[in-house]
Nucleic acid binder design. Structure first.
Length: 582
DNA sequence: GCCGTTTTCGGCCCGACTGTTTTCAGTCG
């Protein structure tokens, strides 16, 4: 996958151009860098499908940049970038990673002191050379030293699941401050991105004079190890966990505008501000203005409405067509957590799960669900005691017994018989067809040989999908966020096969999986491929993860109709099972 | 370098905070 590599090169080009004061061209490259970062489909595949023209369809990509992408695909390099690097051989990406250092300062450091690398920067700072430069001073030098220190100990972006917990803890503390009307999370956490860089928190206060006390208690939270900035309305800190948190304080009449601004995404905001500008309006984080007069701002709903747009849910705010859709009144009604009627992937103490079938059933009933599917591993996963045909049938008896007890208690609830059947290397399934035939719903998943080349891996997957008993492919790409790359799969072919066969693809809600990714989900939705959102619970408490899967589905523009486990049980059987074209 | 319901040329989101300076450039989001 070369998208990330191209993204990095364009980001560096952007920074070189910024050094040369070519700000607009720089922004053009920065924008395409973000696009490449977010594009899930391999740009090589896009190129193979439709050549340079197809690449130009990517937002922000024009003729010149499309040519550079083509050049990279063909030759593995971009001559323009090589020239820039040769002229000024600076390790820009490492240096800009230092908080407070940007292209202009880096340029000065290079010109005055010949600094090219992080190491040279650190040495110069520690030797006190930086403070002597014009426009630099003691503080800047200290901040550089600190910045390098933090850089060395900071790791990956945090999983949404973890960031959420941290944000909630901080919010709870801020809520206790005097004069606080409302506190909420904004930023990528509110957009429910799968990983989070910084946590953004927004607070509304009644009286402006309370602001400084709120800021004071924010920056003195016990977890704080650095204060980047502290102002009347905006402060920025770093937590022990290695995570940066911003707090912004707003008045009631600006809360909606601030929430919108702080939620992003950046590209969404830029586009929305352009929409405003076209109507002779100005949008900033304080409100929507005509001249000096505020015409909207206390709620997001009000701002979108004034601009003639439908309300755009935060998960959609990525500038990938949602603004146009909102303009045309064509936003989909996204799936909600309340729409979910059951969970179709649960591991019990028959294999590597923590709890018994009845425990999960009771928890599901509490959630108001109508069914769960029990899906322990199959025998190939010997490590966790995967079920063979015999034990699977024994488990079926326990499920029957649980259902009987629940029925006697008067619950309208059903435990369904399933399996997470291993797809072995050649695409065959791990269990015999006659055993699968006895189950209500069959899930299949890859757990081994994750490094096969794309063609082979795809062939394997398609072969498994030919099995007439398979209803769902679990965690289709097998990635683990921050740990393991997705399998190399030609997803277009997999999605096509799912469409033809009537097999559903899973959105696995486990925080470090979230597999399918949002972009693939959107392709499924466009194509009419059925989805399911499962917790992959190995414990009763994991069933709460479903909300992250729902969020991922929303980021992929999925509606209730697209998600099989948002359907009542009879429709679930009809559409997922009996409609399966065999 | 990109882009178009004012446009194929002339624009390009907007503001807070910091540090170094006497009015602002650089950085960040």
């Amino acid at each position: 996958m070369i998208n990330k590599e191209i993204a990095r090169i364009f980001r560096e080009i952007s920074e070189y151009l910024e050094m040369q004061e070519d700000s607009f061209r720089s922004k053009a490259y920065a924008r395409v860098s973000r696009t490449m970062e977010e594009t899930q489909e391999d740009v090589v595949q896009i190129y193979e499908r439709g050549g340079k023209k197809e690449i130009e369809n990517l937002p922000g990509v024009g003729k010149s940049i499309a040519e550079k992408i083509e050049e990279y695909i063909k030759t593995g390099r971009i001559a323009y970038f090589e020239e820039l690097k040769q002229k000024e051989p600076i390790d820009i990406s490492s240096l800009t990673a230092v908080e407070g250092l940007g292209p202009k300062k880096i340029k000065k450091l290079y010109n005055e002191l010949g600094i090219k690398t992080l190491n040279e920067l650190e040495v110069a700072a520690k030797e006190g050379k930086i403070r002597k430069l014009a426009d630099f001073g003691d503080k800047t030098e200290q901040n550089i030293i600190k910045g390098i220190q933090f850089l060395k100990q900071s790791g990956n972006r945090l999983l949404l699941g973890s960031a959420y917990i941290i944000a909630e803890e901080i919010i709870a503390k801020i809520k206790q401050c005097k004069g606080i009307e409302q506190v909420g999370v904004a930023g990528s956490a509110r957009r429910m991105k799968e990983t989070i860089g910084d946590i953004d928190i927004l607070a509304m206060i009644e009286k402006p004079e309370d602001a400084s006390a709120v800021m004071e208690s924010f920056v003195s939270l016990p977890e704080v190890i650095n204060i980047y900035s502290k102002g009347a309305t905006k402060s920025s800190i770093r937590l022990k966990e290695g995570m940066n948190v911003d707090l912004r304080i707003l008045s009631q009449k600006s809360y909606g505008a601030g929430l919108m601004y702080f939620t992003g995404s950046k590209d969404h905001n830029i586009e929305i501000r352009k929409v405003a500008a076209k109507q002779g309006l100005k949008l900033n984080e304080y409100g929507l203005f005509r001249g000096n007069k505020q015409v909207a701002g206390d709620s997001e709903e009000q701002i979108y409405e004034y601009l003639g747009l439908q309300f755009i849910p935060p998960e959609m705010r990525e500038n990938t067509g949602e603004i146009k859709a909102a303009m045309d009144n064509k936003l989909p009604r996204l799936i909600k957590e309340e729409d979910i009627m059951g969970d179709l992937q649960i591991q019990t103490n028959w294999t590597d799960g923590e709890h018994a079938i009845m425990d999960y059933a009771e928890a599901a009933i509490k959630k108001g669900w109508q069914y769960i599917l029990i899906t322990d591993h199959s025998k190939r996963l010997a490590m966790v005691g995967g079920l063979d045909e015999k034990r699977l049938r024994e488990q079926g008896k326990e499920i029957d017994a649980v259902n009987k007890i629940l029925a006697n208690k008067g619950y309208n609830f059903k435990v369904l018989k399933g399996i997470e059947c291993d797809i072995i290397k050649d695409g065959e399934l791990d269990l015999a067809d006659d055993a699968l035939a006895e189950l209500d719903i069959v899930g299949a998943a890859v757990h081994s040989y994750l490094n096969l080349p794309a063609a082979l891996q795809t062939e394997r997957m398609l072969k498994a999908m030919e099995n007439r008993y398979v209803n769902i492919i679990f965690h289709p790409t097998a990635r683990i966020i921050n740990q393991r790359r997705a399998m190399e799969l030609q997803m277009d072919l997999v999605i096509e096969a799912a469409f033809k066969s009537g097999i559903a693809l899973e959105i696995n809600a486990y925080p470090d999986r979230l597999d399918l990714k949002d972009e693939y989900i959107r392709k499924c939705v466009e194509k009419g491929v059925k989805l399911v959102i499962n917790s992959d619970a190995h414990s009763v408490r994991h069933m709460d993860y479903l909300k992250f899967g729902v969020a991922q589905a929303r980021r992929g523009w999925a509606k209730r109709e697209d998600v099989a486990n948002a359907w009542p049980i009879d429709k679930l059987f009809k559409k997922l099972k009996n409609d399966r074209k065999r």
